[in-house]
Design a protein around this nucleic acid. Structure first.
Lengths: 333, 333
DNA sequence: CTCCTCTATGAAAACGTTCCCGCAATTTCA
DNA sequence: TGAAATTGCGGGAACGTTTTCATAGAGGAG
């Protein structure tokens, strides 16, 4: 059915070895023969069979990406960016989601692991032991998870948080609420508390809840009880819940209360009022994670020690505040 | 590195042929040997190498899905649902996006076509000729596109549109506006006009524009000029633009004007007010498209004429109105 | 009891590539 | 100019499976 290397070889009057070299090691074949081969290949519409190639040991040319939830609006731009980056580097990306359950994550890994050269695991639910085991079997990069010895991409919200605190301070807010929905690096780090403390802002923490719209709706009613004038939500979705409930309560945003989201998803830019949020750049994270995985693959393959380009297996992605219409001066009390 | 069929064979004391059969044709091997093989395989952690399998001719076990834009919130739930369905059927899904440009679509197809058993093309930008050419090379299913002779999944908005018209009629609306952003089946079909005409509602069409938030913002200012009390937008995103601008103009939704979206994306359920929209069920469309492709693959493989199960290569997906808070009684004039 | 039909299994070819080896022709160097 | 090194190319094995074909044994019919 499909045209094989053999047909190209006979069409160009050379052996299959030479055709193979013409593609994979162009400088090992004489320019004139090479051109003849490439022409023949183009005319016949030949392209190498990835299955045969990877069977022979050349890798699959595919990167695996496992995210908690494809439908979470935070991820599609990242997936898209990683696809673009990978294609540019000659790779394809195979995406699956874990639904944040260990069983599903294992199923997803099983489904893709034999088809990819390496895996990016986002917020993996697996134990350290399992992750190390997996890392022993194939190149691995974890995102939003720290496991000693495994290459890691980390998202740091501290810059964005600090900017948010500054903005709120400048607007005259004094008492704020943080709606926590168990985002690891938020609940774990003390950086939010510290950022606010440093500016003499009081910050009460609500939760942890589930990261859902309804969480924001529910938490909004508690804000007034805390006598707070500003809310930082676990993510944009929760922030929209807050916005929604504030409207129901007859409160105006940002006149009566300021609201800040996290992630800068599409939701933030299309809400009414548009949502001030802490942006994590999807392109940057996709690029860095993809590149880190490809490096790790290269190192495993053995093409390593050819230079000093042994990057640290730890990459940090920053964040920054995107001011929009949901934040404003604190109401006079 | 990885454990092969040969190791399982020697561990179980049988030949590789028998191991292969134990997996692919379980009833051709004696129960006792089969169990022995399965046990050995489980203990060694064996799973067949997909590359070798597909090289031998058994297909890749992967479905290709090419959508216009992964980041469009309409698609992630569909991708997710198709992944789930496919995994259930023993397949994996490889997703790519075309960015609605022919060059990118061709690049995406080139990148995935050799790795999949068949392709689902969503709103393809390719010419009929190219599509037929492609369909000659591999199993193909098109969605939101009609090409004679190619299996097709079609989304029909007529039911949802009719329900929307009924609701608006019941609420006492008389003059409506439709914001068109070149969605093929909307601009092409006269069904919207007909649905509204049938209920004696006037419907003005704006556009066509690009399907963006700003389109809604822009169009909203024109609605008043049309003396209309209800707006149907090309999709939820555009509808949110309308919502946004109405708030800016000091108009209240739904008190002054009713707004209806299309697609029932996440956006619709989290906006303020929540958006009445026409829902297209992502699970249904994913399931039907996936199943149709798998059928087409099976037919191509030759496993066809074993029954009368030759379904029509044409599937229609319905729609329905999801009433939420953005529609209400027309204002007394 | 013999012959024939099944059934369960093994041996080996084939899928399309890559890459190691070997060979010839050419180039380099003393 | 002769030997050595280099270059360009072909032959063939190997990757891990599936599947055809062959074979040995079991069981049934006559």
């Amino acid at each position: 059915m499909a045209v094989t290397i053999r047909e190209v070889a006979s069409a160009a009057g050379v052996s299959v070895s030479t055709v193979s070299r013409a593609f994979t090691a162009p400088d090992q074949v004489q320019p004139t023969t090479r051109r003849r081969i490439l022409d023949a290949a183009a005319e016949l519409g030949y392209s190498p069979n990835p299955a045969a190639r990877s069977l022979r040991g050349g890798g699959t040319g595919t990167l695996g990406l496992i995210v908690p939830d494809i439908a979470n609006p935070f991820f599609p731009p990242i997936i898209k960016a990683m696809q673009a980056r990978a294609r540019h580097l000659g790779y394809t990306v195979l995406v699956a989601d874990s639904d944040e359950r260990e069983a599903d994550e294992l199923a997803a890994i099983a489904a893709v692991s034999k088809r990819v050269d390496g895996l990016i695991l986002w917020a993996s639910t697996l134990t350290e032991g399992r992750l190390h085991e997996l890392a022993g079997q194939m190149p691995l990069v974890v995102v939003n998870r720290h496991v000693p010895g495994i290459p890691e991409v980390r998202i740091s919200l501290s810059a964005g948080i600090a900017q948010a605190a500054e903005q709120l301070k400048a607007y005259g807010h004094r008492r704020c609420v943080f709606i926590n929905a168990s985002r690891a690096e938020l609940s774990r780090g003390k950086s939010i508390q510290e950022s606010f403390k440093a500016l003499d802002l009081s910050l009460s923490e609500l939760g942890p809840y589930e990261p859902r719209f309804e969480t924001g709706v529910h938490a909004a009613t508690l804000v007034a009880a805390h006598d707070a004038t500003a809310v930082i939500a676990h993510n944009d979705l929760v922030a929209l819940g807050v916005l929604h409930q504030m409207a129901n309560l007859g409160m105006s945003v940002p006149r009566d209360v300021s609201v800040i989201g996290i992630d800068d998803t599409l939701l933030a830019s299309v809400s009414t009022p548009s949502l001030t949020t802490i942006r994590i750049d999807p392109e940057e994270i996709a690029t860095r994670a993809g590149d880190l995985l490809i490096e790790t693959i290269a190192r495993t393959t053995g093409r390593a020690g050819q230079g000093l380009e042994v990057h640290s297996p730890f990459v940090e992605i920053g964040s920054r505040l995107i001011p929009r219409a949901s934040t404003g001066p604190a109401p006079a009390h």
